[in-house]
Design a protein around this nucleic acid. Sequence first.
RNA 1: GCCGCGGUGCCGGAACUUGGUAUACGGGGCGGACUUAAAAUCCGCUGGGGUUUUACUCCGUGUGGGUUCGAUUCCCACCCGCGGCACCA
Length: 797
Amino acid sequence: MKYDHRKQEKKWQKFWEKQQVFRVEDDSEKPKFYCLDMFPYPSGKGLHIGHPRGYTATDVVSHYKRMNGFNVLHPMGWDAFGLPAENYAIKTGTHPRETVVKNVKHFKNQLKSIGLGYDWSREINTTDPDYFKWTQWIFLQMFKKGLAYEDELPINWCPSCKTGLANEEVVKGRCERCDSEVKKKDIRQWVLKITDYADRLLEDLEDLDWPEPIKEMQRNWIGRSEGAKINFKLKETEGEIEVFTTRPDTIFGATFMVLAPEHDLTQEIVSGSLEAENKKEIEKYVKKAHKKSDLERTELSKEKSGVEVKGLKAINPISGEEIPVWIADYVLGYYGYGAIMSVPAHDERDYEMAKKYGLEIRAVIEAEELPFKAEGKVINSNDFNGLSTKLMKEKIIEKLEKIDAGERATNYKLRDWIFSRQRYWGEPIPLIHCDGCGTVPVPEEDLPVTLPEVEKYEPTGTGESPLATIVSWVNVDCPRCGMEAKRETNTMPQWAGSCWYYLRYIDPENEKQLVDPEKEKSFMPVDLYVGGAEHAVLHLLYSRFWHKFLYDLDVASTKEPFKKLKNQGLIMAKDGTKMSKSKGNVVSPDEIVEQYGADVLRLYEMFVGGFEDEVPWDEEGVVGMRRFLEKVWGLKEKVVEKEPDEDLRGLLHRTIRKVTEDIESFKFNTAISSLMILSNEMKSKDKISMEAFTKFLKLLAPFAPHISEELWQKHNDGSVLRSDWPEFDEKLAKKKKVTLVVQVNGKLRDKFEVERGIKKEEAIKLAKKREKVKKGIEGEDIKKEIFVEDKLVNFVT
RNA sequence: GCCGCGGUGCCGGAACUUGGUAUACGGGGCGGACUUAAAAUCCGCUGGGGUUUUACUCCGUGUGGGUUCGAUUCCCACCCGCGGCACCA
């Protein structure tokens, strides 16, 4: 009789829930294992076929760990603030809260239908006031420590989402969400000082068991460079130009200075407080540069442009030389000090600039071709000639420090995190603006600050949040002086809630604390974290930052939140392109569960390829998993109580070893393949021992829990998912006979079976007797006989 | 341009950690059994070429070199694909 997944799967899902098989204990003698998925945004579209790939992997590991005696925390929740629900509200008038409730219900049903073993008693939702109370609380602690500050700088503005964005949300000059071109806009913003943590975020990456590409992306994003800060005094006028350089060793090659159009001195020239002979020309250039978006400024980067500040000279503090000052938009206002010393002989960009405007190019490192960017021997540098550039760096920094014209310095690409959004559906920033007291935090006992009901969710587009129009909500008494004051109307970005959610699963009901310190210590850090790689410099950087802050507050006990990280690869359409609605090639997990069963979906997602690789979805391949399960289903007829099956035992133990090692190293595809080999072998037998079959079911259970449970329950009590993981016996796993390969000059000539552990002399004697081998070595002079135990014999002639 | 990952049958992929039978496992295809028939199921074959055609032989893991008794695996150079970053001083 065929396996009826529709009947069986529902039955066991109910059973597991009733028996609380996946419930984690707060006080347990067992070692803990915290296994975490990146929680989803509950979109209206429901679960994508890619979601279950990561979820099944953590589910497999959770079951495996539980069966190995761990107290496993494997929770799930909802990252439910964000624009889709809000945009839907704008269109239909449905409150985002209602949309979220509906979508969460749908998502949860879908996850349950796949048989994923979450401990639902710990479910959280970032839009729940009892949850975001603590998101606001963390923000307030940052505010109190000076890590959250207000700023009015030109920031990234998405004209379609009508909100400011963080740098991490701008991808190639476009909005990460909607792909619109990002504009510059001057608006008041709340900014988090992530740069204070730059060093720790960089250094602590080293000890993390994370994919190297993700670590590398974070390193590049933080972008630390070591060098020097150097002051160039201005000639015949007050003031100086401060520059950052990684190459102080090339200071004698600095033939001009370049200021960014945003530089303070540039502004002074434009405003007239600093005199320049060609003020008009400069004004024109600066205006043009300011109009360009970042995208344009980089796209048009092929050709350098700039304008000299006529009449202004800077003085090289080391050589005393007077050099001209230019303004050019290839120098960025926000990096370093917004100004550089230009060394055209040893920097490509400076070289292009010098070539275009006929500026002096002076080599100060021995080079055959300019620009020369490598290390070498110093020339044209007065007393310093002949030094290595490495030593030169040290000498120059020494000298700068002595004459008080500069010092050793470190610079970062990382910029502070623009944290406020001019939208409705996010956590309100819990601050109050008072004319008398300034910006005052909402008292902790008044948290959470909840969202008011509004009539229109539409963003104003002026840089003000829609909350600003709700007078009754905005107007409050100042908690400090009691006078009339106004609430901050910006909300937090969608990343806020996910920065610390893994801590809340540990103690989701706690009303007094974010998390109980004892519980926190017993479960942190997250042992395994699984999700998509697209969060490399977003969620995965932000949450590390918040975690380190919470560590400093003694709320978290570990330096890092996520010990081990794995990224699941994308699931593509059959032709290798992205699945998309417009192409009509979107596969729904629901259809697969309905037609083939949850176990088949799980098996296929794990079997289709390497976990971290991008793989195409091929429904024909899904059939193979169903056939495998039918085969397993058929095996039950062959099970007999007592049967030694000697010849199956070796393979069984090799399979136990293989599946165990493969789960540990995330090689689920080969684990399943080894289970198939064992089941094929079992199928070829007339009888299978109960013992072998039971062990096989335990190995299969993490991947295909429903069918395993059904077959297990015929002979056992309690869930197979709560049974002990089988142990393998190395002795039994070893093959008694091995195939010995015979080569002549490295080419395969013959192979034959021998007892394991055969001695060299014996093997060579046997090999020489083989007809095919004889033919190869006949009349030849054997110079060497190579023997590799249990593997091969090679005759070299 | 820089950084990272990858290139293996008709397709998804295995073997690369530790050099030692290349293509496990699954799909597809072909042939056969069962059937009135089809589906499903089961059994067999399935890298390419050559031949005196059933046994042997040569070639074969992106390309070209190297190390080695032996290289998909190690080293060097290059080509192609994918992802990330990109005027970061």
